[in-house]
Design a protein around this nucleic acid. Structure first.
Length: 142
DNA sequence: TTTCTTACA
DNA sequence: TGTAAGTA
């Protein structure tokens, strides 16, 4: 039996919001059927689909990329497995972009570290609320 | 009551 | 993203 669900229920079952689900549709990530009255009708499979979308978004992919990637993924009980040959190449490109971003952020942090380290000692108590301090590991605030 | 679209903060 | 309006 294929259970159908309205947007409100799908939102609850996926821990998202109705707003977000409509946005996913607008971005071509979901394509729910419609009732005569225009209500969106989702299938149970969309629950997993939404989880996949969220996983990919967390991985740093934008919605446009996800829209292309989604039809090429198989769900092996929670594990996403590529089913299209060209997908692996695209993912490598995406990974390279992430690497570039990470390196850019690290460089920015190093620059900030230099400036922070150059601050006079008497400025120390002015940054007591800082959650991170200059240094390789960083240190949580007490 | 729930959902829809559109639009503004 | 949240919210409000006016419906179906």
């Amino acid at each position: 039996m294929t259970t159908l669900l309205m947007i409100g229920e799908l939102a609850r079952r996926t821990g998202t919001t109705e707003r977000l689900l409509r946005y996913y549709e607008e971005q071509g990530l979901l394509s729910p059927e419609r009732t005569a009255a225009g209500y969106r009708v989702y299938e149970e499979a969309d629950i997993a689909q939404v989880r996949r979308i969220r996983t990919l978004l967390t991985s740093g992919l934008n919605t446009a990329t996800i829209a292309q990637v989604l039809p090429c993924l198989r769900d092996d009980d929670g594990r996403l497995v590529p089913t299209c040959p060209q997908l692996v190449g695209e993912l490598h490109r995406e990974r390279a972009r992430l690497t570039d971003s990470i390196e850019a952020l690290l460089a920015s942090r190093s620059l900030l570290d230099e400036v922070i380290t150059a601050a006079p000692p008497e400025f120390a108590d002015l940054v007591g609320a800082a959650a991170d301090r200059p240094g390789p590991a960083g240190r949580p605030a007490a």
